[in-house]
């Protein structure tokens, strides 16, 4: 069985601030890492492989430096990896990113099962997975918190809903996005680092794709635009309430209602 895991390189820390005067993003260092949520996706793939065998490929989109996370995936046990890198992909929003990745998936050959993390730590939209499934015309299930069974032609998974848990059987090829904590991700192995030192990482750019229409990629293919960025307002409230118990209760009740903790 062929499993594909989509991974992304994200900043090493979320400590970004906006300089209020200049509107400039302040970010310390240029450290980056694999999106922590993708580790759960990769771990899920590795566990499935442990039980059922198969091949695990990873695919990422990003600048050439993003090769480092593919190497890291090799160190965790992935068999094969590719990077989609082209400056024409720059400035992509959710739609353009999803389209680019779906083209990349077509390029490397269809997988039976595509696994994505729940979301990324830099964009945290949790939408790229479902959009890719749409572009590939395959079904998807989001918020998977348990793999129940791998069958010949389908996978049975448990899906986390707000009030309920749904068990669904989904036919291959399909895409799932997995919850944090579905499995505890393993750490990269130094032994595997030595073994995979020379393993190839394929790099594809727009010219390798079936659809070479530049208008569908990067900024040009992005229907949304960021108009401005600004620092969030923080809860600096510091109130001390004194009084008799009825007054205090009233205040507490009102506050809980204002904050929507009581309907």
């Amino acid at each position: 069985m062929d499993i594909l895991v989509l991974i992304k390189q994200v900043p090493g820390t979320n400590k970004v601030e906006v300089d209020e005067k200049t509107g400039v993003l302040k970010r310390d260092g240029v450290d980056s890492k694999m999106n922590p949520y993708d580790l759960y996706a990769l771990e899920t793939a590795l566990r499935i492989k442990q039980n059922k065998g198969g091949k695990i490929s990873v695919l990422s989109m990003g600048p050439p430096q993003a090769e480092s996370i593919i190497k890291e995936a090799y160190m965790m046990g992935a068999d094969d990896g590719a990077l989609l890198s082209d400056r024409k992909f720059a400035g992509a929003d959710v739609l353009a990113t999803s389209y680019t990745l779906s083209q990349g998936i077509k390029k490397i050959g269809k997988a039976d099962l595509i696994i994505c993390g729940k979301q990324t730590t830099d964009g945290d939209t949790a939408q790229v997975g479902p959009e890719i499934a749409e572009f590939l015309g395959i079904p998807h299930v989001a918020n998977v918190r348990k793999i129940i069974e791998i069958k010949e032609k389908s996978i049975v998974v448990e899906m986390d809903m707000p009030e309920t848990v749904e068990i669904v059987d989904i036919k291959f090829p399909c895409l799932i996005t997995v919850e944090k904590d579905i499995f505890q991700p393993r750490l990269p192995s130094y032994k595997k680092k030595l073994e995979t030192k020379d393993r190839e990482i394929k790099v594809f750019s727009l010219k390798d794709f079936d659809d070479k229409n530049e208008k569908k990629y990067g900024l040009n293919g992005s229907p949304t635009q960021v108009e401005r960025i600004f620092p969030p307002s923080v809860n600096n409230d510091k109130e001390i309430w004194q009084g008799n118990s009825d007054e205090l209760t009233e205040k507490l009740y009102k506050k809980l209602k204002d904050l929507k903790f009581i309907q």
């Binding site: 890492k33 922590p36 580790l39 750490l187 990269p188 192995s189 130094y190 680092k193």
Partner: peptide, 11 residues
């Protein structure tokens, strides 16, 4: 048996 590398905040 192996040597595992922990290099990110989460790890």
């Amino acid at each position: 048996l192996d040597v595992y590398i922990s290099d990110t905040d989460e790890r």
